[in-house]
Design a protein around this nucleic acid. Structure first.
Length: 274
DNA sequence: TCCTATGTTGTATG
DNA sequence: ACATACAACATAGG
C-alpha cells in the first residue's frame, strides 16, 4: 500500500499510544526488517519509555520515545502498522510489538522489504534528517522542481518522479496520477519541459499530494472519484478525461499507465480526443 | 505453473 | 556522471 498518504495514515494508527509507556517489547531479532539496526539494543532501550510523538516524511515514519529515542519505520511494499488488544501474541509476519496500556502497537510486513531503524541522541539521526522537504511544504518550490529537472535532464519524467531524494513520498500510482493530470507523457525527458509544462507539473504534484493526504491520508480510504487511480491497475481501462483506452507499459522500470488522449507522445502525434 | 504487485538496492553495461 | 536493464530481496493472490 504505502505511498505518501498511506504512510501518513499508517503512522497515525499508533497515535493511541501517545503519552503511554511501553511495558513490553516483542520482536524477532533475526527478521530482515532489522537489517540496519541492533534489535536487542532497540528492545532494551524502548522498554519503559513513553511514546512522545511521530512524524512522516515521504515514505518514512519516525516515532519518538522519551526525549532522545528515534524509531524509524519504512513500510516497504507490504508493511503496515496496527493496534492489537493488550497481551497480543506475535503472529506470522509480525516483526515488532510494543505493548502499551491502550493496546499493542505492531508492525507487520509479509514481504519484508520494509525496515526498522533506531537511534539514540538529542539530534535527528542522519537517516531522518536527510529526507528532503515534502511536496506540500513551502520549501518545495517551482525553482526546486526546475533544478531537479535540469539536473536529470535526460531522465524520463516517470523515473524522475519516483526519486525519493527529489519527491519524497511519490510512488508508482502517484507518479502516474500526476503525469496524467499534467498532460505529460511518462517518457518525456525531464529537461524538455517548457515553462508552462513545468508549471503544470508543479501544480499537479501539489494537487495530487494534497488530495491524497486529505482522502487516503486522513481516513485510510481511497483517492477521490475520477482519479486515474481507479482505472490504472488493469489492462483495458478507460481514460476518465478523454474516453480513450489507457496504455500500460514499463517506463523507468515500473509498470506505468498513461492516456494517449491527454498525454502526447514525446516528439509524436498530437493528443487525440473523442 | 506463471505472472503480477503502491519499494529499494546493488551490479553490470552502455 | 548518467541512464538503463536486470536481479535480488520474499510473499500472496489471480
Amino acid at each position: 500500500m504505502p505511498e505518501l498518504a498511506e504512510v501518513e495514515f499508517e503512522r497515525h494508527r499508533w497515535s493511541v499510544g501517545l503519552g503511554l509507556a511501553v511495558s513490553r517489547v516483542v520482536l524477532d531479532e533475526a527478521a530482515q526488517v532489522f537489517r540496519d539496526t541492533d534489535p536487542r539494543a532497540l528492545r532494551r532501550s524502548l522498554r519503559g519509555v513513553t511514546l512522545t510523538g511521530s512524524e512522516a516524511r515521504g515514505k518514512q515514519i519516525c516515532f519518538r520515545f522519551g526525549s532522545d529515542l528515534w524509531l524509524g519505520v519504512h513500510l516497504g511494499m507490504t508493511g503496515e502498522l496496527f493496534v492489537a488488544p493488550p497481551g497480543h501474541a506475535r503472529r506470522k509476519h509480525e516483526h515488532l510489538l510494543l505493548e502499551t496500556a491502550a493496546g499493542c502497537l505492531g508492525f507487520r510486513d509479509p514481504r519484508r522489504f520494509g525496515r526498522v531503524r533506531f537511534a539514540r541522541g538529542a539530534e535527528e539521526p542522519d537517516w531522518w534528517r536527510a529526507i528532503p522537504p515534502g511536496i506540500t511544504s513551502d520549501a518545495f518550490t517551482r525553482a526546486r522542481l526546475a533544478e531537479g529537472c535540469a539536473r536529470r535532464a535526460r531522465s524520463p519524467l516517470k523515473a524522475l518522479l519516483l526519486r525519493q531524494d527529489l519527491f519524497p513520498g511519490v510512488g508508482n500510482w502517484m507518479a502516474d496520477e500526476v503525469l496524467w493530470r499534467a498532460g505529460l507523457h511518462p517518457r518525456r525527458r525531464a529537461g524538455s519541459l517548457d515553462s508552462e509544462e513545468l508549471g503544470r507539473l508543479f501544480r499537479e504534484l501539489r494537487f495530487v499530494a494534497r488530495g491524497a493526504l486529505r482522502s487516503v491520508g486522513a481516513s485510510g480510504g481511497d483517492p477521490p472519484r475520477g482519479w486515474l487511480f481507479w482505472v490504472r491497475w488493469k489492462d483495458g481501462g478507460i481514460c476518465p478525461r478523454s474516453g480513450v483506452t489507457l496504455v500500460r507499459e514499463t517506463v523507468g522500470g515500473r509498470t506505468t499507465c498513461w492516456s494517449p488522449g491527454v498525454q502526447p507522445e514525446p516528439g509524436g502525434r498530437p493528443p487525440r480526443t473523442l
